[in-house]
Amino acid sequence: MADFTSGFWDLFITVLSIAGVIGCALLLYMQSSEKLEPGQKASDTGHTWDEDLSELNTPMPRWWIWLFYITIVFGLAYFFLYPGLGSYPGKLGWKSTGQYDEEVKAAHASYDPLFERYKAMDLKAVAADPQARAIGERLFLTYCAQCHGSDARGNKGFPNLTDKDWLYGGAPETIKQTIMTGRNGVMPSMAAAVGGDEDVANVANYVLSLSNTSHDPVKAELGKSKFGACMACHGADGKGNQAIGAPNLTDKTWLYAGNVETISEGIRKGRNNVMPAWGDFLGEGKVHVLAAYVWSLSNNPAEASAADAKPAEAAAPAADAAASAASAAPAK
């Protein structure tokens, strides 16, 4: 890599750039040196097509020539003002990173107050806000759709976010934590613990039997005892453990596929799924709105907000009655 960061390449680019502009100027000068006097005909190049169509050596119009000269002057001025000649920073000191930083700063000044307002709200309330949900959808389509799909229904190895099946839990705060800090779900290779290929297939059939999915009953019975190696994560009943992201094997929701071949592959080779952390990149305000949107994909925000409001409404009359009783009680 040192060869590509030495001073030679700065000099090479500088010489090549300036030589290109000067070469264009010399070519333009040579091509524009010939002029036609009034009434003078252009010389014939000797090329003829269709028997009578001759190619003439006609000089370019003067306005066209001056337009090219102006372009060359503009190019030289650009090299002087902006970075274009190796490591020369340009007289104005402009940088693309500097412009980007200014644009980001302006964006933060414009949008941060909005995200701060949403961050102070409960996640369910944010999900019930139409504007916040629209913002969350845009964030999702920009940063999450590549893995989970534009419809959020996931893909092989990427969870469906529109159902209520969650590896770590579907509470709004849990979803926010997942987006903020990421997840790393590891299924270790269990081939050695389970046994040979035949035992792996038997366990795979037993796993399918837990959700009443099509399987071989005989092999499932043989694999039941071998499933003991999997209980530490998935539990004796196979219902998983959300604390460590171990999936529930008793439903019909599969991250990869619900068949003997795919399950056997997971037992033999293991799985390693990574959900990247977005907290540092997006900031907590945007993650808050995004988490509310993701939660709304499998829940009804309006119903949730109404349900949360009922206990508060019921508590209000009791609080008023208590206050009245307190005011009426004689002082001791």
Results as ranks from 00 to 15, higher is better:
1 M>T: 05
4 F>P: 00
5 T>V: 08
6 S>H: 05
9 W>Y: 07
11 L>P: 00
17 S>C: 11
23 G>V: 04
28 L>E: 06
49 W>H: 15
66 W>T: 10
74 F>L: 15
77 A>Y: 07
77 A>K: 05
85 L>W: 10
86 G>E: 10
87 S>F: 12
92 L>K: 13
94 W>D: 12
95 K>T: 15
97 T>K: 15
101 D>K: 14
103 E>W: 14
104 V>S: 08
104 V>D: 12
106 A>P: 05
107 A>F: 13
107 A>W: 13
112 D>K: 14
114 L>P: 03
117 R>H: 02
119 K>R: 11
120 A>C: 03
123 L>K: 02
123 L>T: 04
124 K>N: 04
133 R>M: 08
134 A>P: 00
138 R>K: 13
149 G>C: 05
160 N>M: 03
167 L>V: 00
168 Y>D: 09
168 Y>R: 07
168 Y>I: 14
172 P>A: 08
174 T>I: 15
178 T>P: 01
182 G>W: 10
183 R>S: 05
184 N>W: 07
185 G>L: 02
197 D>V: 04
199 D>R: 07
205 N>S: 08
207 V>R: 00
209 S>G: 11
210 L>I: 02
210 L>H: 02
213 T>M: 09
216 D>N: 15
218 V>R: 06
219 K>C: 01
227 F>M: 13
228 G>T: 06
229 A>I: 00
229 A>F: 01
230 C>T: 09
236 A>S: 13
239 K>E: 06
243 A>T: 09
246 A>T: 00
247 P>T: 05
248 N>F: 07
252 K>F: 02
260 V>P: 03
263 I>M: 06
264 S>R: 01
266 G>L: 08
267 I>R: 00
271 R>G: 00
274 V>H: 09
285 G>W: 08
286 K>A: 14
289 V>W: 04
294 V>Q: 00
305 S>A: 15
305 S>M: 13
308 D>I: 07
316 A>L: 15
317 P>W: 13
318 A>Y: 06
319 A>W: 07
319 A>I: 06
320 D>Y: 03
320 D>S: 10
327 S>G: 11
